[in-house]
Design a protein around this nucleic acid. Structure first.
Lengths: 338, 338
DNA sequence: CTGAAAGCGCTTACAG
DNA sequence: CTGAAAGCGCTTACAG
């Protein structure tokens, strides 16, 4: 079945394309009678406007692009859900792309999105993104851009984040207040801002509480396999610091669960021998044994807010844009691992 | 910055739009010299073809639509990853939508996708989809359609599935062979095909092994909260059948983990008191305590295959389409819960 | 209340 | 090797 066009409806009804178009869009200067006839036939023929033609005329696609490191990740999946949900409310569709933590893929994705003429772009940066020319390119094309979670500090655009430094600080301060003194940190790669900020929060909490910062207690998890990174880091930690460590602050729940698994496998008691605290409040953290103390990171909310910010910029594209940064609340969830 | 058009390049170079267009697309009937000049300027001006215009001319968008029940689900997230990855290879972009297990949302999503003029559609049906008019609509519009995982048997189109009946049969047969005799089934909603098939496989395995099928051992999990459904079903099961049940075959890992949690909370030993087997091989099933025996369901593969099937149909749209059904292999993963 | 016409930016069959 | 022209399907300023 070939797609129905305005022309076909016009010919069938013996009126002009203009009138059909206006009738369908409920223009006031079309007679009730005509409108009815057009609507009825359009319905009957299952008329669907050709988007490409509409886009070409109106210069917008009602599609946004989203780039995340990966879809297979509880937090990002939740953010995506929030984005799609908020977008749907405004009749926007979402093209989803993944960088797979590869800056080249991220840059290529931006180009593709730009060539598709999306109305706006939402990005959470890959761990290996070190220059931001592609973000500048988006801005040069006058396409609204909002970064979320994995952001670049120096890029001027709207952002939705949590206060990673504060969240990490609170988590570690809680450990200290519970009496833990030798607190290790399983951190992420050196590059991403969230990784830097969580590390800084960790360090600051120690110093503010007169606990010496010991670099040998910091392990870097950057092999793109959080679970295994956590597992291996826990192993190394125990080999070196056996009875000289009493807690771990892990950069993500996945890293924490890797560590937890190692301890479970090796009869090291949590939290008696070593306490663990994670980050994100991934569903799994609540059902693992022992259940994991963690920082709740509102992914769904982040997705919705990110779209809303983007939508505002799309709507007011002509006006001078004022970039906003929204900081979402986090919350420490205390469970049995601490 | 306003977007650069062919016209601007043509004027700057004092040649026709036609020639610019041809040069950019490397037509053989353009001189080397001209090509070079055009390419250089296009590069320099950061020229990006206007997709809407191209689409309108070529009558394709190079975008496909994907509808899944939800993105926050390990299996679907994995399938999505596979789809996006395979699509990227063919220069296709993916619009992602979610039905949230709501048939009305699913139908509306189809309409939106159709109006965007996507070149093809991939769907995994919601649990509450009971009529398939929207699928027929897609076919009536001559848009290629491929169903995956949650399919409708009566719809004539290509499909990518696993053999749910056989996979369930094998899982239950394994339990029987291990010596379990009173095997409960925590099934899904009555409607979805996968739920029906896994139930049938369960029943057949019992009968083939001369074990009486006891309907009171079958619990329906259909509150859209698999974990809790599993937890509550386990509770009821124990209340009623306490020492008269020795194993559970759960329709998904999430349901299995809910049950496992209940048993862990209530000092019921797995697998000594009750064995559990799940379905999907969600990452979590390998790290929970005890680790979960389950059926591996190849999500990434399913996503890639689904796109490939769709792509073939898009490419050969003019020809008579032969619908294919691809059945992917599953594999029983034996761990500590059985 | 209706419609002719221009134009969005591109591609391609055709003429020269 | 180059370019004028038609046309994809729509929207909208303008004339009547």
């Amino acid at each position: 079945m070939k797609n129905v066009t305005l022309k076909q409806i016009a010919e069938a009804l013996n009126i002009s394309i203009t009138t059909v178009s206006k009738a369908l869009k409920d223009y006031p200067d079309v007679s009730k009678d005509t409108k009815q006839k057009v609507l009825a036939l359009a319905e009957n023929l299952n008329y669907i406007p050709n988007s490409s033609a509409v886009n070409l005329r109106t210069q917008q696609t009602k599609i946004i692009g989203v780039i995340v490191p990966t879809t297979v990740h509880h937090f990002f999946a939740t953010v995506i859900k929030g984005i799609i949900k908020a977008a749907k409310k405004k009749n926007y569709l979402v093209i989803l792309m993944q960088s797979e933590e590869d800056d080249m893929q991220e840059k290529k994705s931006v180009d593709l999105l730009l060539s598709k003429g999306v109305d706006g772009i939402l990005i959470s940066l890959s761990n290996n993104t070190r220059d931001f020319n592609h973000l500048e390119k988006i801005k040069n094309h006058d396409i609204p851009l909002v970064l979320f979670d994995k952001i670049s500090k120096i890029t001027k655009c709207s952002k939705v984040v949590i206060n990673d430094q504060k969240a990490a600080y609170d988590a570690v301060a809680y450990l200290i207040q519970k009496g833990y003194k030798r607190i290790a940190h399983f951190r992420g790669d050196l590059n991403p801002q969230v990784s830097i900020d969580r590390f800084l929060g960790y360090k600051k909490a120690l110093l503010d509480n007169n606990i010496e910062f010991d670099p040998s207690l910091v392990y870097i998890c950057n092999n793109n396999d959080d679970f295994n990174d956590g597992y291996e880091s826990a192993k190394k930690l125990i080999e070196i610091h056996k009875s000289n460590v009493d807690a771990i602050f892990a950069i993500t729940d996945m890293v924490a669960i890797g560590a937890l698994k190692y301890f479970n496998d090796n009869n090291i008691k949590i939290p008696d021998d070593v306490a663990i605290i994670g980050f994100s409040n991934w569903f799994m953290s609540s059902v693992i044994t022992p259940s994991l103390t963690t920082v709740d990171q509102p992914g769904f909310e982040m997705g919705k807010k990110a779209f809303k910010l983007l939508y505002e910029e799309i709507k007011h594209k002509d006006k001078k844009i004022v970039h906003k940064t929204i900081e979402l609340e986090t919350r420490l969830i205390i469970r049995n691992s601490t």
